[in-house]
Amino acid sequence: MDKIELRNITKAYAKNPPVIENLNLKISEGSSTVLLGPSGCGKSTILRMIAGLEKETAGELLIDGKNVSGVEPGDRHVAMVFQNYALYPTMNVKENIEFGLKNLRIPKAEREKRIQEIAKMVGLGEYLSRKPQQLSGGQRQRVALARAIVKKPAVFLMDEPLSNLDAKLRNQIRTDLIELYRKLNATFVYVTHDQVEAMSMGTDIVLLEKGEIRQIGSPPEIYGKPENVFTARFIGSPSMNILSAEELKRADLPVPPKAKYVGFRPEKASIGGREKAPRENEVALQGTILAREMLGDQILYKVQSPFGVFHVKSFDLQMLEYGTNSVLIKNSDLFYFDEEENRMVC
């Protein structure tokens, strides 16, 4: 069942050209849908429209099959976690969590029970009487989560909730969020520009660019079957190598005639190792190593070839010398894209 549905949604600010035009999107109940894209792609706007904080210029927004245009944010049964946490600075942790419940006139006994439950769940028990300024970034994030969870909403909206945290804490809270998602059994809509976060958090990923959906799919689909150059480049770190098909054709490599770009993932190529000629199902590219980066469990090479510069990720920790090397890629790991940058299925 679709929990949230956007039908032909258009959003424009004042008299400016629309940031989102005729967008259609279905978010199914119980999913963890990640809206992913570079800044300015409209992902936050979509989230804020679902929350009711922004009004759609045209189109219909449905929650549980009902049009919610004109329904106040507080009445949409959604909770939101903000990037900067947006905790009420003058209230202590408990009051922060309680504020929404009080406004809903939930009896005191019930409020107390819920707060104790939540505090235990997110590990805030001993901080209930502290003010937000006295908490660390991670703790504030937890208060923000608790404030959302305590209302028992049907939908959790998360606007880049981890981007204000340092890298270590981000990984930790990311894991906590996944656990939470499984426990709560609610619908998550999660906005991020970080593809790693998207891959790990999402059951569905909606990849956006300039207010348009580029691809929707599960993390493996988005990674393994990119439908266009944008998706291919956006997902994966480092991103997919995209080379000009023309150059490859000139070098007599087998490329479908209509292809304009050829792509392969850095981790699917192997460098060095065998000096022999490529096997039948492989292509070989010659290139010089421009830079090597030792990343601990892998080595990243930046390679200059006649077809352009590309990256190769090697799990062989024996570092190669600078100089000319051959790079081998299986034919099945090559992606071809046509003139419109869409993938060609061969």
Partner: peptide, 9 residues
């Protein structure tokens, strides 16, 4: 899960 909001809405 009980999504309905308790108390008077």
């Amino acid at each position: 899960t009980n999504y309905a909001l308790n108390g008077r809405v």
